Computed example of a mutant assay.
Amino acid sequence: MFIVIVGAAIAGVLPVFIQATASSVDPMIRRQALAVAESVMSEVMLMPFTFCDPDDDNAETASSGAGCATTAESLGAEGGENRYGTPQFDNVNDYNGFSMSGINDITNTAVTGLTNYNVSVAVAAAALGSITAGSGDALRITVTVTGPGNTSIVLDGYRSRHAPNSP
């Protein structure tokens, strides 16, 4: 009788353990996706936010795009800039439209174990407090990471320009 009762109890509890074990990988995938998103967001946020391309002679002093000697910044990379080679991204705006399939570090070396993750970055003018979107003095940066099992993480960050530029 004891064996029958214990057997029935184990049969009832066993599916719970199986489900818990099968689901325990899911938080790891979300944590990896979040770590990738935070890393890319930090990389973008640490870039200068200037009116002119940082290679422009007037980048440090221009108070508008009209003050640039050669190249005013606009959304998206200019002049063949990319994340990995020369010329390299050098402004927050350059990351607009950037994406990668499989995660690579800044030297374009694949990160082991992250080949099933994808990243996309969008940068757009934004309103932020008293800053209007039309002024171009604030940007909304959206980093989207997708991973195995339909995992999706979206991070939004804001970057504002200070007088006259923000290195």
Rank of each mutant, 00 (worst) to 15 (best):
M1Q: 11
V4L: 15
I5Y: 14
G7V: 03
A9M: 13
V13A: 10
V13C: 10
S23D: 07
D26I: 10
D26M: 05
M28H: 02
Q32W: 02
L34G: 11
A35N: 15
V36C: 05
A37S: 06
A37H: 09
E38A: 15
S39H: 11
S39K: 08
E43N: 14
V44M: 12
M47H: 08
P48M: 00
T50C: 07
F51H: 13
D55P: 01
E60Q: 09
T61H: 00
T61I: 08
S64F: 00
A66I: 01
A69G: 05
T70H: 06
T70I: 03
E73G: 07
E73L: 12
S74D: 07
L75F: 11
G76S: 14
G76F: 04
E78M: 13
N82F: 05
N82E: 04
Y84D: 03
G85V: 10
Q88K: 13
D90L: 02
V92L: 12
N96G: 14
N96M: 14
F98V: 14
F98G: 14
M100F: 12
G102K: 06
I103V: 11
N104H: 15
D105E: 08
T109Y: 03
V111M: 10
G113C: 12
T115R: 04
Y117V: 11
S120M: 09
A126H: 05
A127F: 00
S130T: 15
I131E: 03
S135H: 03
G136W: 06
L139K: 11
T142C: 02
V143L: 04
T144V: 14
V145L: 10
V145Q: 06
T146M: 03
V154D: 13
V154W: 04
G157N: 04
G157Y: 08
S160G: 00
A163Q: 01
